[in-house]
Amino acid sequence: MTDEPLLRVSALSKSYGSRVGCDNVTFDLWPGEVLAVVGESGSGKTTLLNCLSTRLLPSSGTASYRMRDGHFRELYRMSEAERRFLMRTDWGFVHQNPADGLRMTVSAGANVGERLMAVGDRHYGKIRATAVDWLSRVEIEEDRIDDEPRAFSGGMRQRLQIARNLVTGPRLVFMDEPTGGLDVSVQARLLDLLRGLVTDLGLAAIVVTHDLAVARLLSQRMMVMKDGRVVESGLTDRVLDDPRAPYTQLLVSSILQV
């Protein structure tokens, strides 16, 4: 099963007029693998993530995804209906700001159940049981199931967003700074939870972060971006312990030591 990649990205570029978003990015992502994309603000990480998740169309380049039937499909040639179906079944997208990924005015249970209903689940009892199960897996108490996310803390909202994305059993999850804006103890628990879920479910994930510690904890492989280009990529431990590109060396040496 793992002798073929899940996602093949080739020479992907996105420019905004004369400005470069990301330039000539090529990589493969394998099933169950977590890839971290790190770099400073404006380095093109989020542009890359948005292109990969088809929220943006690239200027050039291709990306093909291995569907559940084993066939590769070219992402940017799929119809919008197919892409949107993929996004709510086989993929997940965890936003930095949970309000972007949640429906803030419907209950936590409905937030988790929405994807199930979108793919045709029509049994209230089963949807609710699944929602309860997923809330407990992300450490949200069952009696909060009918509360709106507006009444949740930042960390809870982020965990709810993760549950909402994982409920359909996706194979690939995109995460944009999943721990951004959370305080360190909440961050630590969220990372712990994410690491557990990713391992248990065998998820592949692309995590965009500027926090090298997050990359170290979550990912097996990482890409360092600067000005839209990939300046270095490799196993996370290797890149962080033995950075080769001058920019990576600067990045690693800039980490504050407590």
Partner: peptide, 22 residues
């Protein structure tokens, strides 16, 4: 309009779900 075009009606059931939950 896009949701109608693509027949994405999961959201309609979210409303009914909310009714039952409340």
């Amino acid at each position: 309009r896009k949701m109608h075009a693509l027949e994405e009606y999961g959201l309609m059931h979210v409303k009914l779900y909310e009714d039952i939950a409340r």
